[in-house]
Design a binder for these strands. Structure first.
Lengths: 210, 210
DNA sequence: CGACAATACGAGTCTTTGCTCGTATTCTCG
DNA sequence: CGAGAATACGAGCAAAGACTCGTATTGTCG
C-alpha cells in the first residue's frame, strides 16, 4: 500500500521491469538461497544493470518482500479457490484434505523457489516479516475449518492442531517436490493419509447428504 | 580421521580451546544462522582472538564441520542407546516410537542450535557434506527396523516410509523445541500419534511374549 | 516540439568479513 | 635451563557484494 502511494508515477515499462526482476529474483534465490544471492546476479539475470534494479527496489530485502507478496497473492488465490465458495466444511474429511492440499502442492511444484525462500527454519528478519501473512492466512483458514468440524476443541487445542497439520505438510512438501511420477503420487497419498488420521481424532463428520 | 593425522602435536590447552571454540560456534550459529555468523564473533565469544581460531580451524566451514561431527557423535550415542542392545524390533510399535523419539527430542532440547544448522531446507555444500552421515545413520536404523517388522514391504516402499517418518519428526521438532511444559508434552504426544498411525499401516506387531 | 519525469546504465564507493602474518608468550622435554 | 614447538595475539589485507551517483536515454503530456 505504502509503496504504491509514495512511488513516483510508474510507466508500463517500469511495471514490466518489476515483474522481470521478481522473476529473476525467484530463480536466483531458488538457486543460491537468500543470503548467497547477489543483487548484481539478480540484475544480470534480468538483463538489466544493478542501478536499474535499485530504481525499483530500495534494497535486497525489498526485493524479497515484494516476491513474498507476489507469492502471498498467488497462493492466497489458489487457497481461496480451494476453501472456496462451496462450503468446504460440509465435505467429508477425506475430501477436505484433498481439496486443501491439491492447490498447495500445485503451487509448490510451479514455484520451486518458494520453499527455498520460505520454508527455512531460520529466517532473516526481513523474510519473517514477509512470510508472516502467508503463514497466518493458511493457519486462520484451517482454524476456521476446525471451529466448525471440531467444535468441542478448546481454542488452544484447535490452534495446536492447526499448527501441527501445517508442519506436517511443510515437512513432507520438500519430498513431494523433489520426487517425480509415481513416487510423488505415493508421497502425496502418504501426506494425505497422515493428515487424515491425525485430524480424524478431533473431526466430527458432517451429517451425510443424499 | 585426517585431521588427527596431519595435525601437529596438540597440547591439552589446545584441546580445551577447540572445545571452547565449538561451544561458542554452536551459540553463534544458533543465534545468527550459518552465513550470518562471523568467525570474528565466534572467536570473540570464545574469548580469543581471530588468529587463535585459525590456529585450529582452516576456515569457517571447518568449524561447522567439526561441530557437525561432534553432533553426529553425541546423537549417534544417544541413538545407539535407544536402538540399543535390547532388541528394539521385538517391542510393540508404540514403545519403539517412544524409545526412538525420546533421545531425539532430548538431544534437540539440549542443543538448541542444532536445528538452526542442520534442519535447513537449503544448505551450503559444506553443511550438506557434514550432515550426510547424520541423516544417513538415522535413516539406516529405521530402515533396518522396518526390514524386520514390515518384511512384506518392497525396498523402495521401505525407504520411502523411513524418509517420510523422518520428515514427520523434522517437521514437528521445531514446534516441540519452541514449546514448553504441557504444550510441549501435547506436541510430543501428537508426534508419536502421527508416527504410530503412519507406521501402523505397514507394521506387523511381534508375537506377544508373556 | 520542448520540458520534465521516468527509466537505464555501470564504474566506482564503502562496508563487511574471512582470513593472514609478524610477533609475543607459554608449554614440553631433554 | 634452553631450544623448539604449540599457542596466542590483533591490526590489517583482500575479496565480495550491497548500494550510489553522474550521466544518458526514453517516454509522457501540454
Amino acid at each position: 500500500m505504502d509503496e504504491a502511494k509514495r512511488a513516483p508515477k510508474r510507466q508500463a515499462r517500469g511495471e514490466r521491469r518489476i515483474a522481470q526482476i521478481l522473476e529473476s529474483a525467484a530463480e536466483v534465490f531458488a538457486d543460491a538461497g537468500f543470503e548467497a544471492a547477489t543483487t548484481n546476479a539478480i540484475a544480470a539475470r534480468a538483463g538489466i544493470s544493478p542501478g536499474s534494479l535499485y530504481q525499483f527496489f530500495a534494497n535486497k530485502d525489498a526485493v524479497a518482500r515484494a516476491l513474498a507478496e507476489r507469492y502471498v497473492a498467488e497462493l492466497g488465490a489458489a487457497q481461496a479457490a480451494a476453501f472456496g465458495p462451496a462450503d468446504l466444511a460440509e465435505l467429508p474429511l477425506q475430501q477436505v484434505i484433498e481439496r486443501v492440499t491439491e492447490p498447495l502442492i500445485a503451487f509448490n511444484l510451479a514455484n520451486r523457489g518458494f520453499k527455498t525462500l520460505f520454508a527455512r527454519t531460520d529466517m532473516p528478519p526481513a523474510l519473517v516479516e514477509a512470510t508472516a501473512p502467508l503463514n497466518g492466512a493458511v493457519h486462520r483458514r484451517i482454524d476456521a475449518l476446525l471451529q466448525v468440524r471440531a467444535p468441542g476443541l478448546a481454542r488452544a487445542d484447535r490452534e495446536r492442531t492447526a499448527t501441527v497439520a501445517i508442519q506436517l505438510v511443510r515437512g513432507l512438501m520438500p519430498l513431494i517436490v523433489a520426487a517425480e511420477g509415481d513416487e510423488r503420487d505415493r508421497l502425496v497419498r502418504d501426506l494425505r493419509g497422515v493428515l487424515a488420521s491425525y485430524l480424524a481424532d478431533v473431526w466430527a463428520e458432517p451429517p451425510a447428504r443424499d
